[in-house]
């Protein structure tokens, strides 16, 4: 019995990983490097492959920061032809490292809602901002904070959870927002007082949202998340609900606009196919689909908004920094943040 079981496992194990591996090698293969949050409906990708005669080989490279570092490390022998998911916090670093080639096709000449950087095509944008648990604030007598300064007051002690900017891209974006909105010195002064006032630091978005946020059984009613999160809460609710259980809180110095783009990888091949893919990312179907698959706003103006996105309020004011400034000073700010908040 035992030996038979083992040999069965052995035979299966030998056969399984290889099954279906050599299925399609005939079509032209385009290697697309994406971050771990990349998601588009499978039929949409399949239709693109059929129409363009291209076989997509999608490679996930971790979160956007990890992905860029992998691209930089392998620049001598690139692992992809085209890359999607570099945002305005990373594109400066990518350009400085010389891992991208400029793209000048039709999509580059069309106006995008937010611009990104020369030669990098904006695909979508979103806002990193505070979210709050509506039920928590309804139950407590505490009014919503009106400024970041309020959060540093004793009344708001132990209420906020943020992500570590060194390990999380929304965490980094929020740090950048505070620097852009308050000024560098005032921002780090605020972070120092937030430390004293019990700000909690989680490793990533999932840890913050699912183990610390009061909506999910944690103790913090305020969390750094996205302006689209309330819409996702409605979309992924268990029962049909008409109002989101969470809402965005737009405070001065607490909102960062993030713009994600697609770009050619320097040294990559398949330029014609890569161009088709870049145009595809800015096409109507993708721009519509990404709203509820990646929970971002479409960069192409006049794209129809998905109905559920009415729960995702776009802030009137927000903070942004130029890609060059971020490339230049970003890692220094992270180091300083670690000193001020963690050490």
């Amino acid at each position: 019995m035992k030996r038979r079981t083992l040999s069965l496992i052995a035979a299966a194990a030998l056969a399984l990983p290889l099954a279906g591996y050599h299925s399609a090698a005939a079509a032209q293969e385009l290697r697309v490097l994406v971050h771990s949050s990349f998601e588009l409906p499978k039929p949409l990708l399949a239709k693109f492959e059929a129409d363009a005669g291209i076989k997509l080989s999608i490679i996930k490279g971790g979160d956007a920061g990890e992905m860029l570092n992998k691209l930089i490390l392998t620049r001598a022998k690139p692992i992809a032809d085209v890359v999607y998911g570099l945002d305005n916090t990373l594109v400066g670093k990518a350009l400085a490292a010389g891992v991208l080639d400029a793209y000048g096709g039709p999509a580059a000449r069309r106006v995008a809602v937010p611009p990104l950087a020369d030669g990098v095509i904006p695909v979508d944008y979103g806002f990193v901002t505070l979210n709050y648990d509506k039920a928590w604030f309804a139950k407590s007598a505490l009014p919503l904070p009106r400024t970041l300064e309020d959060l540093a007051q004793p009344a708001y002690r132990n209420l906020l959870v943020v992500q570590n900017p060194a390990t999380s891209s929304p965490g980094n974006a929020f740090l950048l927002a505070t620097v852009a909105g308050l000024g560098e010195e005032a921002a780090f002064d605020w972070w120092g007082r937030m430390r004293a006032n019990g700000v909690k630091v989680a490793k990533g978005w999932s840890e913050a949202y699912y183990t610390e946020f009061s909506r999910n059984g944690g103790s913090r009613p305020l969390v750094v998340s996205y302006a689209s999160s309330p819409a996702a809460e409605v979309h992924f609710s268990k029962e049909k609900i008409i109002a989101a259980p969470t809402a965005s809180l737009f405070l001065k110095g607490g909102v960062f606009r993030q713009v994600e783009g697609v770009a050619l990888v320097k040294g990559g091949g398949q330029r014609a196919a890569a161009a088709k893919f870049i145009e595809f990312m800015r096409s109507g179907p993708v721009q519509e689909a990404l709203q509820t698959s990646m929970w971002m706003f479409p960069a192409e103006p006049r794209t129809a908004r998905h109905a559920v996105m009415r729960h995702a309020v776009e802030p009137g004011i927000f903070d942004s920094l130029g890609p060059e400034v971020i490339a230049d000073k970003g890692s220094g700010w992270i180091e300083r943040w670690i000193r001020v908040v963690l050490k």
Partner: peptide, 9 residues
């Protein structure tokens, strides 16, 4: 667990 919503959890 990388996106919000009760159904995801």
């Amino acid at each position: 667990l990388g996106r919000p919503g009760a159904a995801n959890r």
